[in-house]
């Protein structure tokens, strides 16, 4: 245990000492990658959050609120709530109520290495959808000063949903996804947009 902690500390010190421009991954940015899964009955936002080593402490300060070096279920839920408040999803102009469906927070030690990824999944009831064209908009305002963003629509699992257009702002913190719903088409299951396996 002591050896593991010592090794982690040594690694963190080595990483912090290494010039960021030369180092092999993003160490001063918080990567927030969102996959938007659109299904006839629900919208799912699968979000992977990876803080670089230089910003990991700032992110951890918002998660490990009692600073005991561990992330409790209560703290994980509170961080999910914090993130949720920074997300705005609308379907055809109507604000969607997001609910946390799944989450996995790695240990503070792993987060501090810059390799740890927090996974969160939020869902919102989308149906009953009317046949025809729809527009989903999503805005992510979470920790904007340190973050870089990716937002992508997942390839629909069902032929009844067809993505027709995606439009993002320059840094991908916001997007519009236009799609059509064809309820009479046979639902052919595909391989895309499946639920991630939370470890």
């Amino acid at each position: 245990m002591v050896e593991a902690v010592s090794r982690t500390l040594s690694l963190i010190l080595a990483l912090l000492a290494f010039p960021s421009a030369a180092f092999g991954h993003r160490d001063d940015q918080y990567l927030q990658a969102t996959l938007v899964v659109i299904e006839p009955s629900e919208i799912r936002l699968q979000i992977n959050l990876t803080p670089g080593v230089a910003v990991a402490e700032q992110v951890l300060a918002r998660i490990d609120r009692d600073r005991d070096g561990a992330i409790s279920k209560h703290e994980a839920a509170a961080y999910a709530e914090l993130l949720k408040r920074d997300l705005t999803a609308r379907l055809d102009g109507r604000k969607l109520e997001l609910k946390l469906a799944a989450s996995e927070l790695v240990s503070p030690a792993e987060l501090r290495t810059g390799a740890g990824t927090i996974q969160m999944e939020f869902t919102a009831i989308s149906g009953p959808l009317a046949a025809g064209a729809h527009r989903l908009t999503l805005e992510n305002r979470h920790l904007t000063t340190m973050s870089v963003y990716l937002i992508n629509a997942a390839q629909p699992r069902f032929a009844t949903v067809q993505i027709t257009r995606q439009k993002r702002n320059a840094n991908q913190s916001a997007c519009e996804i236009d799609f059509t719903y064809h309820p009479l088409r046979p639902k052919i299951a595909g391989s895309a947009g499946q639920r991630p396996s939370y470890r």
């Binding site: 990567l31 390839q155 629909p156």
Partner: peptide, 15 residues
């Protein structure tokens, strides 16, 4: 700014 389907993104497919 990065790969969308890089390491750790098994099973995902984007539009």
């Amino acid at each position: 700014r990065d790969l969308v389907l890089g390491p750790g993104r098994d099973g995902q497919t984007i539009q």
